[in-house]
């Protein structure tokens, strides 16, 4: 029974990892841009939710609001700063975005303090589901279902709509998109903002489960990269599969060998890099 819970926890965790990683992966696919500030957007999403809930605003308003605010902040940053460095080598991307991540992290410490806090689960999902021996918090069930629906909608939007085709086409050739009359700078900004907004949403969803603290972004960033590497750069299905894999590995290991739980996800990544360098579903 304990393993069932851990697998469920792992799926919940994995879906959050997926949300985090898919934004990173789409941004890399379209812009060839390595974004080390992605974890900071997750951090900001979590803290904005925390702040809004503290002000007695309903979680159901706070969660989408946090994601939208993060997307706006990211869009402005892209349009004013990041688009200037796309053409430079990846090391410059890392330099600038690590700097940006530190600025956001310090901003969080200045505004909300260094200690962190907890976010109450929304009242409508406060209890636990009890079926015989099976006891599980409603909020976690909600988080799994919500992200599963979102994952499906995102997949549909990306693969079956004109807008999704535009994003996929842009990641093949921006020059051709310009020749077809698309303002690629605007598409870039929109996609960057959207990817960051997903990270913000992951932060908002995670806040009632794990609370908030100023360094959660760093941890999230490393996990997101692990997921993207395992799944394959730029692959949507890869991000989903790898997110779930990493989440379940981490949760199961937390029971079997708690000290090694974090270690094992890096072992999994190393294994994938050695056996299939492009990742499970990678194209590049």
């Amino acid at each position: 029974m304990i393993y069932l819970f851990q697998v469920l926890n792992g799926i919940g965790l994995g879906m959050l990892y997926f949300l985090l990683a898919v934004g990173l992966s789409i941004i890399f696919g379209l812009l060839q841009f390595v974004n080390f500030a992605h974890g900071a957007f997750y951090l900001l999403g979590a803290y904005l939710t925390y702040d809004l809930v503290e002000r007695d605003i309903s979680f159901w308003v706070a969660m989408p609001a946090a994601a939208v605010i993060v997307a706006l902040v990211a869009g402005l940053t892209e349009a004013s700063l990041l688009r200037r460095i796309y053409k430079l080598p990846h090391t410059f991307h890392i330099l600038v975005t690590v700097g940006l991540a530190l600025v956001i992290q310090e901003f969080v410490i200045v505004v909300w303090g260094p200690l962190g806090g907890s976010v109450a689960t929304p009242k409508s999902l406060a209890g636990v589901l009890i079926i015989g021996d099976f006891i599980y918090p409603y909020y976690r069930i909600f988080a799994i279902c919500f992200t599963a629906v979102l994952a499906f909608v995102l997949y549909w939007a990306l693969e079956r709509t004109r807008l999704g085709a535009i994003v996929r086409a842009g990641s093949e050739s921006t020059e051709t998109m310009a020749l077809l009359g698309y303002d690629t700078l605007r598409i870039n900004t929109a996609v960057f903002a959207f990817g960051a907004g997903l990270a913000g949403l992951a932060g908002a969803l995670a806040a009632p489960i794990r609370g908030v603290e100023p360094f959660m972004g760093v941890e999230a960033l490393s996990v997101a990269f692990v997921v993207v590497v395992i799944g394959g750069m730029g692959s949507y299905v890869g991000a989903l599969a790898a997110g779930l894999l990493v989440g379940v590995i981490q949760s199961l290991m937390a029971t079997i060998w708690p000290e090694g739980a974090r270690l094992m996800i890096y072992v999994a990544m190393a294994f994938v890099i050695v056996t299939m360098p492009r990742g499970l579903f990678g194209r590049v």
Binding site: R162, A165, I166, R168, A169, E172, S173, E175, T176, L179, L180, R283
Partner: peptide, 14 residues
């Protein structure tokens, strides 16, 4: 400049 990962019809629709 054909988008190789899009279908022919997607290439046209966009």
């Amino acid at each position: 400049g054909i988008f190789g990962l899009l279908t022919v019809e997607e290439n046209l629709r966009i």
